[in-house]
Design a binder for these strands. Sequence first.
DNA 1: TTTCCTCTTGCGGTCTGACCAGTATAATAG
DNA 2: CTATTATACTGGTCAGACCGCAAGAGGAAA
Lengths: 231, 231
Amino acid sequence: MDFTPIRVQKVYEDIIEQFKNMIYSGQLQKGDKLPPERELCQMLDVSRASMREALRAMEVMGIVDSRPGEGTYIVDEITSSMFKPLSLIIALEKNQADFIELRKILESACAKRAAEMRSDEDLEKMQSQIKIMMESDDEGRRAEADKKLHRIISEATGNKLLIDMVEVIADGIDAYIKDARKRLMQDPRNVDALLQQHIAICNHIKNKDGQAAAREMEMHIDFVEEKLKRL
Amino acid sequence: MDFTPIRVQKVYEDIIEQFKNMIYSGQLQKGDKLPPERELCQMLDVSRASMREALRAMEVMGIVDSRPGEGTYIVDEITSSMFKPLSLIIALEKNQADFIELRKILESACAKRAAEMRSDEDLEKMQSQIKIMMESDDEGRRAEADKKLHRIISEATGNKLLIDMVEVIADGIDAYIKDARKRLMQDPRNVDALLQQHIAICNHIKNKDGQAAAREMEMHIDFVEEKLKRL
DNA sequence: TTTCCTCTTGCGGTCTGACCAGTATAATAG
DNA sequence: CTATTATACTGGTCAGACCGCAAGAGGAAA
């Protein structure tokens, strides 16, 4: 006998399901205020504990926002919170190849779009970070500038989704390889290579050459990945 | 006076924070079994309700898995569950430009990698879907084949992360534009145009021309987006 | 009448303790 | 030694209580 295992739906999952349907059907929209928890419990005939588990779950998903004394609302602005779990998953996953590939895809796409849409202001911000990288002797500061530069590039796309996602993935990976990076940067040749790559990327963005910027970004991430592997 | 609002950390967030740190520090690893809820409560000196809110939150993040009578475990395999909230956010967001752009980035990257890594088996699967599209008169079946084809392409990359993410985003957007698509497909010219685009993408994948496949995929999504806008 | 303060009310946040229904393990019978 | 049964353990759910914050009602002062 080979029966299918019965998947027992937990109450909180059921509750989320109902909210989901109301969102899909448009009955719940951005910014809407939800009834008080106690009322919701009566409506769905569940305990407050279960209702709260569902609400907390939706809170970490970035779908609702509960404020003490005020009430619970459907969020009215997308936040990066929904991507936060990613950094934890990255920390759990020893084989990070998939994450690095995803990062490469996203960051090169950012570079391409940044090249196409950048304002002069964006360009200035990038170059000020590069200046810090060139002039500073402190690896900590250089690493910070590196990070900022990548963020400025993603911000130049104007796509909030992209910005948040790149940041979470980059942070997750960076936290994981932090020590390795430090050791890598003890060799001045590596420091210089990285600097040249960053300059090249920015130049392509300056010249509004999206293709080249994307290619350069991809090579840049490949370079770091390759060096780290050898460590 | 311009004080910073005091951010009151909720208990469940605090608990998650502690788990997060243990994951980052490596004290908690994939597959580990957690102590029973009641013990955890004692360790952290919190109520079971709060502990459960934290656990449920981590469950929807795809980090832990609780099984009745058995215990709670750190997940040992990445699941797509962490991306599920995205489809809800998509449903909430009227302006989907950012999502469509993200989709374009991911799917064209998939096409590129699929072209580079595809097996003959992958190719066969793609072509069988195209055959369905060509021969079927039922728009429902054609839409299904369309969807499957895109999934086969993402699967050809072998990157689970990418597969899950593309699926969630595509599903979210498709659900949103479902009716519009139906109307679009009432015009045979559109049906044919889409078919030609799919064939072109697959041909590039067949020829292992990643650049062309990516470009074609991007144009394909642009085409659909453009047509939908005019509707 | 208007403004300001106070107080009530409503809300989310947290805790306690209890019971249920599965799973796993130890004890028992064969 | 094996198969069965009984027990302990674990997550899932519920009910009820109390706290502190926020908003709005109502009254006091200008």
